Computed example of a mutant assay.
Amino acid sequence: MHLIITDAWLARSHAVHLSGTKLVLAGLGLSLALMMVAAGLYHWVFLKGAREGWPVIGTLVKLVVKDEFEQRDRFMRENLDVMAKKLGEMQAKMVQLEALGERVSGLAGVVPSEIKRVPGRGGALVSGRPLSMEELQATLADLEQLTDQRVDLMTVVESRLFDQKVRKMMVPTQKPVSLGQLGSSFGWRIDPFTGRSALHTGLDFQAEPGTSILAAAGGVVATQEFHPAYGNMVEIDHGNDLITRYAHASKVWVKKGDLIKRGQKIAEVGTTGRSTGPHLHFEVLVQGVPQDPQKFLAAGENLPAPQMARAMAPAPAAPGQR
Rank of each mutant, 00 (worst) to 15 (best):
D237G: 04
P228L: 13
A229N: 12
K251T: 05
T223I: 15
A222Y: 06
N232F: 06
Q224Y: 09
V220G: 02
G219Y: 05
K251R: 10
S250Q: 10
S250K: 08
V254H: 02
G219C: 10
G218R: 04
A249M: 03
R245L: 15
S250A: 11
V221P: 01
V234D: 03
N240D: 13
I243Y: 13
G218F: 04
V252F: 05
A222R: 08
G231H: 10
E235W: 08
A217L: 13
G239C: 11
S250P: 00
W253Q: 02
I243A: 07
H248L: 09
T244I: 11
G218W: 02
N232L: 08
W253K: 03
N232D: 04
A247D: 05
M233Y: 13
T223F: 14
M233I: 12
Q224A: 15
A247C: 13
N232S: 09
I236D: 02
A249H: 01
G231T: 05
Q224M: 15
R245C: 11
H248R: 07
G239K: 08
A217V: 07
G231W: 11
L242H: 08
S250T: 00
F226Q: 09
G219N: 03
I236Y: 04
Y230P: 01
H238C: 10
M233E: 10
K255H: 09
V254Y: 01
V252H: 01
D241L: 15
F226P: 00
P228F: 15
V221N: 02
N232V: 06
D237R: 02
G219P: 00
